[in-house]
Amino acid sequence: MKFGIVINEGPYTHQSSDSALQFVKAALGKGHEIFRIFFYHDGVNNGTDLGVPPQDDRNLAKEWSELAEKHGLDLVVCIAAAQRRGMLDADEMKRHGKNASNLSKGFRISGLGQLIEAGIQADRLVTFGD
Protein backbone atom coordinates (compact mmCIF):
# COMPACT_ATOMS: atom_id res chain seq x y z
CA MET A 1 0.00 0.00 0.00
CA LYS A 2 1.10 3.56 -0.73
CA PHE A 3 1.27 5.96 2.21
CA GLY A 4 1.50 9.73 2.22
CA ILE A 5 2.73 11.33 5.45
CA VAL A 6 2.16 14.90 6.62
CA ILE A 7 4.23 16.37 9.46
CA ASN A 8 2.90 19.63 10.83
CA GLU A 9 5.20 20.39 13.75
CA GLY A 10 8.91 21.00 14.12
CA PRO A 11 11.33 18.64 15.85
CA TYR A 12 11.79 18.39 19.63
CA THR A 13 8.96 20.68 20.82
CA HIS A 14 6.33 18.19 19.67
CA GLN A 15 6.47 14.43 19.33
CA SER A 16 4.96 14.50 15.85
CA SER A 17 8.22 14.10 13.94
CA ASP A 18 9.30 11.24 16.22
CA SER A 19 5.94 9.51 15.88
CA ALA A 20 6.03 9.90 12.11
CA LEU A 21 9.55 8.48 12.00
CA GLN A 22 8.50 5.38 13.95
CA PHE A 23 5.40 5.00 11.77
CA VAL A 24 7.38 5.30 8.54
CA LYS A 25 10.00 2.79 9.72
CA ALA A 26 7.24 0.34 10.65
CA ALA A 27 5.47 0.85 7.31
CA LEU A 28 8.70 0.33 5.34
CA GLY A 29 9.45 -2.75 7.45
CA LYS A 30 6.11 -4.18 6.44
CA GLY A 31 6.87 -3.62 2.77
CA HIS A 32 4.62 -0.62 2.23
CA GLU A 33 5.61 2.21 -0.06
CA ILE A 34 5.99 5.78 1.24
CA PHE A 35 4.87 7.97 -1.64
CA ARG A 36 5.93 11.22 -0.01
CA ILE A 37 6.54 12.89 3.33
CA PHE A 38 5.27 16.46 3.32
CA PHE A 39 6.43 18.95 5.93
CA TYR A 40 4.02 21.81 6.61
CA HIS A 41 3.49 24.56 9.22
CA ASP A 42 6.42 24.44 11.70
CA GLY A 43 7.07 20.95 10.36
CA VAL A 44 9.34 22.56 7.79
CA ASN A 45 11.90 23.01 10.59
CA ASN A 46 12.54 19.26 10.49
CA GLY A 47 14.55 20.02 7.37
CA THR A 48 17.14 22.31 8.94
CA ASP A 49 20.73 21.23 8.60
CA LEU A 50 21.85 23.61 11.34
CA GLY A 51 20.48 21.83 14.38
CA VAL A 52 23.13 20.53 16.79
CA PRO A 53 21.29 18.41 19.36
CA PRO A 54 23.26 17.04 22.33
CA GLN A 55 25.23 13.90 21.51
CA ASP A 56 23.09 11.69 23.72
CA ASP A 57 19.89 12.84 21.98
CA ARG A 58 18.47 11.81 18.64
CA ASN A 59 19.21 13.98 15.61
CA LEU A 60 15.88 14.05 13.79
CA ALA A 61 17.01 15.92 10.68
CA LYS A 62 19.85 13.43 10.27
CA GLU A 63 17.54 10.46 10.88
CA TRP A 64 15.15 11.67 8.19
CA SER A 65 18.03 12.31 5.77
CA GLU A 66 19.49 8.85 6.35
CA LEU A 67 16.13 7.11 6.09
CA ALA A 68 15.42 9.02 2.88
CA GLU A 69 18.75 7.98 1.40
CA LYS A 70 18.33 4.35 2.37
CA HIS A 71 14.78 4.00 1.05
CA GLY A 72 14.64 6.69 -1.62
CA LEU A 73 12.03 8.69 0.28
CA ASP A 74 10.66 11.94 -1.10
CA LEU A 75 10.95 14.53 1.70
CA VAL A 76 9.18 17.70 0.64
CA VAL A 77 9.27 20.94 2.60
CA CYS A 78 6.44 23.37 1.76
CA ILE A 79 7.93 26.43 0.10
CA ALA A 80 5.39 28.95 1.44
CA ALA A 81 5.72 27.69 5.01
CA ALA A 82 9.51 27.42 4.65
CA GLN A 83 10.01 30.96 3.39
CA ARG A 84 8.15 32.42 6.35
CA ARG A 85 10.25 30.43 8.78
CA GLY A 86 13.68 30.85 7.23
CA MET A 87 14.19 27.48 5.58
CA LEU A 88 16.06 27.89 2.29
CA ASP A 89 17.78 25.65 -0.19
CA ALA A 90 20.65 26.94 -2.32
CA ASP A 91 18.37 28.10 -5.15
CA GLU A 92 16.04 29.96 -2.80
CA MET A 93 19.05 31.50 -1.08
CA LYS A 94 20.20 33.01 -4.38
CA ARG A 95 16.70 34.04 -5.44
CA HIS A 96 16.11 35.99 -2.24
CA GLY A 97 19.63 37.39 -1.95
CA LYS A 98 20.39 35.63 1.34
CA ASN A 99 23.87 34.56 2.34
CA ALA A 100 23.09 31.10 3.71
CA SER A 101 20.94 28.09 3.04
CA ASN A 102 20.00 25.43 5.58
CA LEU A 103 18.14 22.56 3.96
CA SER A 104 19.38 19.11 4.98
CA LYS A 105 20.44 16.50 2.49
CA GLY A 106 17.57 14.45 1.14
CA PHE A 107 14.95 17.20 1.59
CA ARG A 108 13.61 19.31 -1.26
CA ILE A 109 11.52 22.49 -1.25
CA SER A 110 8.37 22.55 -3.33
CA GLY A 111 4.82 23.83 -3.45
CA LEU A 112 1.61 22.90 -1.68
CA GLY A 113 0.49 21.09 -4.80
CA GLN A 114 2.82 18.30 -3.66
CA LEU A 115 0.61 17.82 -0.60
CA ILE A 116 -2.56 17.61 -2.67
CA GLU A 117 -0.85 15.22 -5.08
CA ALA A 118 0.13 13.01 -2.13
CA GLY A 119 -3.51 12.98 -1.07
CA ILE A 120 -4.55 11.92 -4.55
CA GLN A 121 -1.81 9.39 -5.28
CA ALA A 122 -1.38 7.74 -1.89
CA ASP A 123 -3.84 5.13 -0.67
CA ARG A 124 -3.72 6.64 2.81
CA LEU A 125 -2.65 10.07 4.02
CA VAL A 126 -1.59 10.12 7.67
CA THR A 127 -1.06 13.44 9.47
CA PHE A 128 1.15 13.97 12.50
CA GLY A 129 0.75 17.30 14.26
CA ASP A 130 0.08 19.14 17.49
Binding site: G113, I116, I120
Partner: peptide, 19 residues
Protein backbone atom coordinates in the same frame (compact mmCIF):
# COMPACT_ATOMS: atom_id res chain seq x y z
CA UNK B 1 -1.94 30.14 15.74
CA UNK B 2 -1.16 30.03 12.03
CA UNK B 3 -3.24 26.93 11.28
CA UNK B 4 -6.31 28.80 9.96
CA UNK B 5 -4.25 30.89 7.52
CA UNK B 6 -2.11 28.01 6.30
CA UNK B 7 -5.20 25.81 5.92
CA UNK B 8 -6.66 28.47 3.66
CA UNK B 9 -3.45 28.51 1.63
CA UNK B 10 -3.74 24.75 1.07
CA UNK B 11 -7.37 25.06 0.04
CA UNK B 12 -6.60 27.76 -2.53
CA UNK B 13 -3.94 25.53 -4.10
CA UNK B 14 -6.16 22.46 -3.85
CA UNK B 15 -8.84 24.20 -5.91
CA UNK B 16 -6.65 23.76 -9.01
CA UNK B 17 -6.64 19.97 -8.71
CA UNK B 18 -10.28 19.30 -9.63
CA UNK B 19 -10.99 17.24 -6.55
Amino acid sequence: TIYALESLEVVLIAAAFDQ
